[in-house]
Design a protein around this nucleic acid. Structure first.
Length: 305
DNA sequence: ATCCCGTTCA
DNA sequence: TGAACGGGAT
């Protein structure tokens, strides 16, 4: 996606989007804070999880662990249990958040770095989250590029090229200097409520209609998002069950765990036992549970620390 | 079935 | 570059 697909009237486009956002937008609670810890919690929770499902969990999480120090002082297992209780999915994100809290508390003396490059060194923090935290906490980020932003840019410039676009470069050129807090909120708002898979250009009063290739041509093709395999019966589903069982029940042996994970699990069957063991090992490697092999029969327990 | 304000590891 | 990672909602 070449730069020349941007119209000459860059300033008008920028003003139009910022005015559109200022006029009305969703009242997401983390938009009312600039505390980097609160922002980080919101962003990590929001990775691949719908925002409506995040709001309650975010408020409960911050009530329980109001500061990065409080979270760092908590045993990992409690954070994992919270994640599981609130059905946030992707339990590894609970571990990443807990590890990040420890790093901030110990290596950064309790205060967050302001630069995206520094934030990106935290576990579970990639380019998106680093720029989101830098933007919303410090107004110090680059343009964020998530699936929403990609969809907007693709449609904006779809008639201009058939080459693989550099979304980062284009997004960055579009953002007015030193406006990342407002700008990134506005871009994601546009992608979230107007430029959705099924676009709502007129209903949503899209501020970019007059510059948009897709609006002009009626071709609202969007970039392919990789589809996920069926969840039912998947490894991911069983991993999630194990984490929840251990969070609720504490230490359980293989024979106790198996039937609670899969109804037709046979504790006497070696294949069943190694199937379960493999899942537990992967969870232990992810720091979500602890595998005990000291006794007769192996068991799984809440993660230490 | 498909989507959801991504990141990690191979 | 691709697969794996959870699970609720529509």
């Amino acid at each position: 996606m070449p730069d020349e697909c941007l119209p000459g009237a860059l300033d008008s486009m920028r003003d139009a989007l910022l005015a559109w956002y200022a006029a009305d937008h969703r009242a997401l609670p983390w938009r009312d804070t600039t505390d980097p810890y609160e922002i980080l919690v919101a962003e990590v929770m929001s990775q691949q999880t719908q925002l409506e499902r995040v709001v309650d969990a975010w408020e409960a999480f911050l009530e329980r662990w109001p500061t990065v120090a409080a979270l760092a002082d908590t045993p990992r297992a409690e954070v994992v249990a919270f994640w599981s209780d609130h059905r946030l999915g992707y339990n590894r994100r609970a571990r990443f958040l807990h590890e990040s809290a420890s790093i901030i508390a110990h290596d950064w003396d309790g205060s967050f770095p302001r630069e995206p490059d520094e934030l990106e060194r935290l576990p579970g923090v990639g380019p998106y989250t680093a720029n989101a935290v830098a933007s919303f906490a410090f107004n110090n980020g680059d343009a964020v590029v998530d699936t929403n932003v990609k969809r907007i840019l693709f449609r904006l410039c779809t008639a201009s090229t058939d080459r693989e676009p550099s979304y980062e470069r284009l997004a960055s050129r579009l953002m007015p200097p030193a406006t990342s807090r407002q700008w990134n909120n506005a871009m994601m708002e546009l992608g979230g409520v107007v430029c959705e898979k099924r676009p709502r250009c007129d209903e949503g009063n899209c501020p970019w209609r007059r510059w948009c290739d897709a609006y002009a041509t009626g071709d609202f093709t969007a970039p392919d998002v990789p589809s996920q395999p069926t969840f039912d019966g998947s490894r991911r589903q069983f991993r999630g069950r194990i984490v929840r069982i251990v969070s609720e029940a504490g230490r359980v042996t293989c024979s106790e765990l198996g039937p609670r994970v899969r109804v037709d699990f046979d504790p006497a069957d070696q294949d069943d036992r190694s199937w379960l063991r493999d899942l537990v090992e992967s969870l232990a490697a992810d720091g979500l549970v602890r595998l005990e092999t000291a006794t007769d029969e192996w068991a799984v327990a809440p993660v230490a620390e």
